[in-house]
Amino acid sequence: MSDTKPNLFEGVEAKPGAAKPDPIIIADGITRQFGGLTAVDVKHFEAQRHAITALIGPNGAGKSTFFNLLTSFDVANSGSAQFNAVEPGKPDSDVRTIDLGGMSSANVARAGMVRTFQLTKALNRMSVIENMRLGAQHQSGENVLNAMVAPLWRKREKEITEQAEVLLERFKLLDKQDDYAGSLSGGQRKLLEMARALMSKPSMIMLDEPMAGVNPALTESLLDHIVGLKEDGVTVLFVEHDMHMVRRISDWVVVMAEGKIIAEGDPHEVMANQAVQDAYLGSHHDTNLFEER
């Protein structure tokens, strides 16, 4: 797949913190300590717009913490980050630079950067369709005064329900729409969480281990969904352990170890990097990361 499209990474150097032609995120000097442990220490990071970037690294490398920091779910000890937002439908040149420092997580999401969690956060005692509706933005019925007058929000409710049904259809969850989210399997909940995040029509989505726990029969279609997102113009940054998947869909790979970015590059070449091999072998003797399947 990666051969059939124009290369967004033309001329980008394969080194940690490499500059990208059209970065959607730029992060600088981000650190996070837990007690004596430095979980994240990223000197410079850029993610290319409209690309699928994979963030890999051994367990405990700081990937989830880095996600948390970018989306304000955690507080960095130092550093800054910016998000170059483009409103849906506007040309890419129409960039609005948003400083992510000091922003609440809700505002980060409203700016168009949504995420999922490594430990799935399905809203268990709500139906699947209600989970989906919750993801939509611009709902006047979320104002408590408007909420009392149903005609004010019925139309929007119908719109988002239709949008939700299309997404649920795509993720093969439509026949479950009236079930409680808590009754779904772990893999289905991951899918629901991703579909729900897409309800907000984000310009960027950050997926923390989207494939973990998903039934192998479903992973294929999940990969297709992610590629489909890119075709819809959504930028994807995802964490994944399975190099096979990473190679299949990603345009660029960023490798983290012990909080630092130790390598970046093309998915087919980055694993040949000595630093990457050391990082993995250091903690993962028994994984089959390097075998082509």
């Binding site: 992060a27 007690g35 304000s72 955690d74 000890n77 800054s80 420092g101 000091g102």
Partner: peptide
């Protein structure tokens, strides 16, 4: 992203 000076382990 938020940012703060931490008191550290103390």
């Amino acid at each position: 992203m938020r940012n703060a000076d931490h008191a550290g382990p103390k």
